[in-house]
Write a protein that binds this DNA or RNA. Structure first.
Lengths: 218, 218, 218, 218
DNA sequence: GATGAATGAGTTTTCATTCAT
DNA sequence: CATGAATGAAAACTCATTCAT
């Protein structure tokens, strides 16, 4: 059941006062989400925490959902920035280094606001946080894809696009699992090493033991 | 609105009629979840669809949440069964075949009830569906771990437990992404091949091009 | 702007308890309408006055509007009954007597619940109380029309349907004006006499002084 | 929501700019009333349509209600003007012509702004639009009364004041019914003829068939 | 004066849960 | 046990009005 209301701010905050208001509200929503979870994140509560009246919430956001969407968008933007920063510094490092860096970047990102990331991932319902977080990844996918394309001849892949898709899914999968179940591991080198290995071996030209089909030989 | 309460069934339904009732309710909840999403899944609606009165719902489930939990548990159990079935037939297939089979099993499982899986993944909020689905995977993790342990000498891994954890996260991550964004791919051999490659190359003894650290050579 | 919601009860009160509830709610709405007017007639206030909870209101009425509609319908039904009763006793009285009776009936009806009639007439907004009250009159129109038809040869009219329409509008107009501005007159014989005269002379065969066009002679 | 307040303008707008402002606001209110109905007629919306800020509204009108009252008053004034114009041209036309003219005038008036008239009649709640519209009629009542007085000896009436009251109520009743239910009829000669007949026969000296009481003979 | 952002009391409406029958 | 009417706390959202700029 799709939402029946627009999820975009009802007026663009052109004035500085307005911008501040929006800022405050998104901030407050984030705080409430973090502290009390999605269900307890009511418009009145948000207004309270923001130190403004409910009316003001509705001056800038047409409904509750749009508030959460705004939080997600802000979070995504932050992740995106962090990601781009890291990846753009890759330059022409060798394969191994590059992969290590990329994995490191993704790890970093998860650490940025792990609790928020988790709440959005876990608790935000119909809005489809999961989907949206995937979309976030899709945004840096092109960068990874481009890199794979550029290093194609060193790699054992035929379709950089598919490879990027698989790798992002895989790393993200491991990371989200770790984030939810073993947050401590995020700090460990072990995780980074294993992910690097996962990526690197996937990208490497196939050697004797890795084949495409069960009937394929050793 | 009552305060927070336990999310386990109020009593073990030992009677035959009771069991039927529980069955009917879980079924109805599943249907509502599928058709209208989590937010529209009210206890009255479930009772309606189940063809019983709200009161009866509370005879077997202490609150709304426990209903959804039951749906998740049933879903998980089904997945689990499917998984075990597949994996137990592995026997002593060679590495490549075995991996192919395992990946195939996980793909199967996703196809079992993709819509429900998706709703639970996407829409069920506070209950922490994501976490619980991870837990599901954790349940077959031991099997994979055991298998890895048994084939340790053929593989390039040092810690089967970690390897299982990483691999499950990775495959699951790719699959959930595909499920949400490109459901069509589930049918394609391409996906299976790529996942097999991912797993196989990760498990293979390290060859020249895959190393543990960026400083490590080739 | 038409309302976007159904204005009919959400469940039919088949049980006696239910019927009582509906009764109580309509009664309470009437009381509030009478005492505080339309704008002050909130669902919570109605529930309060009815001595039940808001939830119960919504068990039987989908929204506020439907409550008021129910009040109007009950009021109309009462008027209708009163009207039919009076008119059915007309038998084959002579013209003058019959008209006197009819006018008397309409007067009676206005006296039935003059304050409620007035509130509905005056204060109920978009629901179109005015239109609906006209519709009430339309319901007894056929009876008047039939009577005119039956006495056609004694009368100076050509189209009983039009005549009924005009007469009802005229009498109703005078009465509603009196009701709003000079309620005291309702008791006076003067009013009844004048209305009788109005109707009677309109129905009488045209004599010298009444013509259809300004150019018409005498 | 503030408590009840006076419904008269806060200050007499004597300045030229002020007058323009008032004009613009009343116009805007009319437009909103016409387009969206009473409930959607919010002060902010009016300000928007008027192209000014809400604050300005409150510079000239103490509250929302006074805005609507102003619309009514302007409408009434327009009707009044139209009526007076027509009636003053009557001169010493003969009875039949005069009545025809008067009925024509009332019909005209209904056609002036039928949609607005209707909205005010139907939708404006507590303000008591109906009562006020009656008051409008009361304003030209003296003119009609005077005319009846002047022609008393040609007529069959004893109390011109009562006669005027009854006639205005009657014609108005028919017209408002037609306006609400059969707007098309406003254009038809039929209606005018019937109303003329209604008035004329009422005013005519009583002939054989019209008597004052049921016991009165033919 | 004009502006329009901010207010917040007040409305409508929902829904998990209870309990008398 | 089953029922479903009743509950009522609480949520989302509105809008007349104010007041700092």
């Amino acid at each position: 059941m799709a939402s029946r209301r627009r999820a975009t701010p009802r007026k663009k905050p052109v004035q500085r006062r307005s911008k501040a208001m929006v800022e405050v509200l998104v901030e407050a929503t984030t705080r409430v989400l973090l502290k009390d979870g999605y269900e307890a994140c009511t418009t009145n509560r948000v207004a309270d925490v923001a130190g403004v009246s409910v009316g003001s919430v509705y001056q800038y956001f047409p409904n509750k959902e749009s508030l959460v969407v705004a939080v997600m968008e802000r979070h995504q933007a932050q992740l995106q920035v962090a990601m781009v920063e890291r990846l753009s510094q890759l330059g022409d490092a060798d394969l191994s280094t590059a992969v290590h860096e990329m994995v490191g970047a993704m790890l970093e990102v998860q650490r940025l606001q792990p609790r928020l990331h988790r709440v959005l991932l876990e608790q935000v319902p119909r809005i489809g946080a999961t989907r949206r977080l995937h979309e976030l990844n899709s945004e840096y996918a092109p960068m990874i894809e481009a890199w794979l394309e550029a290093h194609r001849d060193e790699l054992g892949i035929t379709n950089p696009s598919v490879a990027a898709y698989v790798l992002i899914g895989a790393v993200e999968g491991v990371l989200s699992r770790v984030l939810l179940e073993k947050p401590g591991w995020l700090e460990l080198g072990l995780l980074k090493d294993q992910l690097t290995r996962l990526v690197l071996s996937y990208l490497s030209p196939i050697t004797a033991s890795a084949s495409r089909s069960p009937t394929a030989p050793s």
